[in-house]
Amino acid sequence: MVRCSNSLVGVLNFLTFLLSIPILGAGIWLSTRGTSECERFLEKPVIALGVFLMVVSLAGLIGACCGVTWLLWIYLFVMFLLIVLVFCFTIFAFVVTNKGAGQVVSGRGFKEYRLGDYSNWLQKRVTNTKNWNKIKSCLVDGKVCQTLQAKKEALALFNQENLSSIQSGCCKPPIECGLVYVSPTEWTGISNSNNSDCTTWSNSANALCYDCNSCKAGFLANIKRDWKKVAVVNIIFLIILIIVYSIGCCAFRNNRAEKAHSDPRWRP
């Protein structure tokens, strides 16, 4: 007789199997229809996630509902590794995003961002040219500065704008450069600042401050905010994983008990 825990594991893994189908489909769609570097960057991780969920859910489904003990054992082993990985990533996310915050600028509605304020690990990710070129491609394709480019507002109104961290870092030069405001994405004059971003800045719509350290810092500020949210979600996900793992252990014991009852060789 299949116990309640076996049925519950079967239902949960059936739902996970159904979830893996659209995830895998999305990865395949990105591989065939993706037009931007950003979309192609997501292709392999999405396909890998879809295949992983599909294989693991099938192992748990067959192992629990069909009494295949060795499959259920593999399922539990993978679940245990997943719990360890999620736990480690959650701790890691809190550690690497602990440092860094936007700098308040007097008389401005937005903050400015400095690369040196963030953890060394995050800094190394964005100062790597290969990594940053991919990120920059995503920012350009995402047209993060488009709304500002369309505005021709006066400086007083621009100073009150509630810019996102990426817009503040990538779409305008740092305030300390002392450049003359023409429009949100057009500035003129010669800077006396030693900040390298002041010479990196360009009025070209495809350049702006995408190669500035302030842009990299603004991107990291966005990553920090997102990772904090992900870490909280991971805690909830970790609790769910532990509950499912516990139910799976019960199902595994049920399989062993039924096997021992039907086959004397399995009895302790």
Score class of each variant (00 low, 15 high):
K152T: 15
A217W: 06
L24E: 11
Y210I: 04
V68Q: 14
S183N: 13
G178C: 00
S204H: 09
M1Y: 09
R3C: 14
F41M: 04
Q160L: 14
I223G: 01
W121C: 00
D117C: 01
C65R: 06
E37R: 02
S106Y: 11
D197S: 04
V84R: 05
S214I: 01
L42V: 03
K111H: 12
K224M: 07
V56H: 15
D263V: 00
F14S: 12
L179S: 07
Y75G: 00
T35G: 15
F80N: 05
W227N: 07
S20R: 01
R256L: 13
K228S: 11
S246D: 08
S20D: 04
Q103N: 13
F158P: 11
S183V: 01
E112Q: 14
G218S: 04
L115F: 04
W187C: 03
S7M: 11
C177L: 08
H261R: 13
A217E: 02
I83N: 05
S5H: 04
K130T: 10
W266H: 13
V68M: 11
K228R: 12
V95L: 11
S196P: 15
L155F: 14
V84G: 09
E112C: 06
R265F: 13
P174W: 00
V96P: 05
E112K: 06
T129F: 01
N234C: 15
L72W: 06
S196D: 12
K152E: 15
I223K: 01
Y75N: 02
A221R: 03
V55Y: 08
W70V: 08
R33W: 02
V9C: 07
T16N: 14
I175T: 14
N128C: 01
M79K: 08
N213T: 04
Q123E: 13
S262W: 05
F89Q: 11
A231M: 12
W187K: 04
S168M: 07
K143A: 12
N194R: 06
N234L: 14
V78M: 11
L157W: 08
S193K: 05
S119A: 12
L122N: 08
L72Y: 02
R265E: 12
Q103T: 13
R40V: 00
S7W: 12
V232H: 05
A207T: 12
F17E: 09
V104N: 14
V46K: 03
K143M: 09
N255E: 11
T32M: 11
W73H: 08
P264R: 10
T147V: 14
T200H: 03
E39C: 05
C198Y: 00
S202K: 08
V144C: 06
G27N: 05
A217F: 04
G10D: 05
K259F: 06
N255H: 06
F89E: 10
L76E: 02
V78D: 10
E112T: 08
L53T: 09
K228Q: 12
E258G: 15
C177I: 02
G25E: 00
G218D: 03
R114T: 08
L24T: 03
F80S: 14
F87G: 12
V46I: 15
L148G: 14
T32C: 09
C88H: 01
N195W: 05
L163N: 13
L61F: 15
L30D: 00
V55A: 13
V104C: 09
A221T: 02
N222I: 00
G109Q: 06
A217K: 02
I91H: 00
M54Q: 10
S119N: 10
L238M: 09
I47S: 07
C177H: 02
N6E: 15
A64K: 04
E161D: 15
G248P: 07
N213R: 08
